[in-house]
Every structure is written in structure tokens, then in C-alpha cells.
Amino acid sequence: MSERAAAGIRIERVVKIFGDVGITALNEVSLDIAPGEFVSILGPSGCGKSTLLRCVAGLDTPSKGQIVVGGVPVSAPPEHLGIVFQRDALLEWRSVIDNLLLPIEFRGGDSRAVRPHAKALLRMVGLEGFEDRYPSQLSGGMRQRVAICRALVDDPMLLLMDEPFGALDALTRDQLNIELQRLWLANRKTVLFVTHSITEAIFLADRVVVFSPRPGSIADVIHVDLPRPRKLAVRTSELFHGYAGRIRTLFEGMGLLKEDE
């Protein structure tokens, strides 16, 4: 199914200052991501983690430093990029299957040839038989599943996800974590996953990059050494608690979490 090699990402001393107001969103962020690696970027709201993702996607330009994706410096959106936003960004006027085929159409591909693959993706997330529904007929979780399939349909080198499950209820979120892991294990794309959920970040990632806020910079990088495929039950394991505790301590150190005295 997956033909295209996953791309590595090199982020070199990236600074992002938002022009007129002079707010520093990112301060000297450097990070290397190996091809096929799943990296979570974890941080509180407004810490610049989404800005970093947008810079990797070529939607924002760093003020200083550079980003290299698959050996090519990013100046515009890289080729073969899959992207998922917090709100699903589905086109309401297109059926589920036509939403999935949008990237193929935009890149001038043969959408009829890709149809079977698109249907196979939908089957993997339990949306078989929903091909001809409109987005307004789907629940939030189903819509986000379609958005993820859309990001994967054109066999990207790199998958960027900007808090994709942030707007979903906790149960749906857990379910989608499992499904995302399944899709990732089948494809082994490079994934950059932005989230503010500690549990989600650890559960999904090979490495969790913890951001500190204002100006956004990397506070710590945690290697998650849990065997895959991971089950939700892993979240109650001692090892998992260890990772979560370390991250919570980091956030306490930043003054983001305060216990009652």
C-alpha cells in the first residue's frame, strides 16, 4: 500500500516572530526527526507548537533558521504532505469519498485509480458504507476519521497533525488514538503530532517533545520505550506513569501546574 519513502525533518534554530506585534512564538527551536518516526509535540495552549507545525507545512515562514523536509529546504508547502487540523476542514459540498479524493485532484492524479485505496482506508477506520454521505450527516469523530484518511490517501512522505482530536469527546478520542496507531503501523509515515494531552502524546509517540511557553522552546525530549502495538491499558502501566510524571514535573517547573498548598 505504501510506496513513497517517509521523509525526515530537520528543524534548525527556528525563530518565529509575529511581525507587527513583535511576539516571539518560537525561540531557537532545533529538532531532528527520523523518517518513519512518530513525534508528539506537547505543550500548553499558545506555546508555539502549532506555529512550528505550520512552519514545517510551509504555511508560515520562520523569521530565522530553516526547516528541511526530505532533504529539501521548506519555502512553500512540501510535496506529498498530509495534514490534519483540529477542525476537520472537510468540504461540506463533497461526499465522504470525494473529500478523500481532493488531494488527488489537486495534484492532478487519477482519482478513479485511487478510489479502491480510498475505500480501503475508510474500511480501516470503520467507515465502510459511508462513502456517499455528506459531512453534515456524520458525527465529529467520523468527520475527523475522514480528514485523517484524506491526509493519507495520496501516500504522503510526512503527516502533520495539529491537535486533531482536541475537539472530540474523551471516548472518541481514545478510539481514534487506537485507529491512528493502526494506520501508522500499516504505513510508517513520519508523523508530527501536536497535542496538549499528556496521555495522548505518550500513547502515540516514539518521542515526546515538551514545549515551554512564551517564547516557545523545547524544554525536554522524552523517548517513549513502550512496545507496539500499544493497548489503551498501557496507560495504567508503571512505565507510562513514569513518563507522565516526568512531564507533569516539567509543567510544574514552568508554573503551569500548581498544587493546592
Binding site: G58, L59, A76, P77, I83, F85, R87, A89, L91, F106
Partner: peptide, 14 residues
């Protein structure tokens, strides 16, 4: 057009 849909279009190099 919602901003994220425009972003999606740009990311797809439309």
C-alpha cells in the same frame, strides 16, 4: 471560506 480549508488548499499546493 473557513481559514483551515484555505490552509488545506495551500498545503495541497492548489
Amino acid at each position: 471560506v473557513p481559514a483551515d480549508i484555505l490552509d488545506l488548499g495551500r498545503a495541497l499546493r492548489g
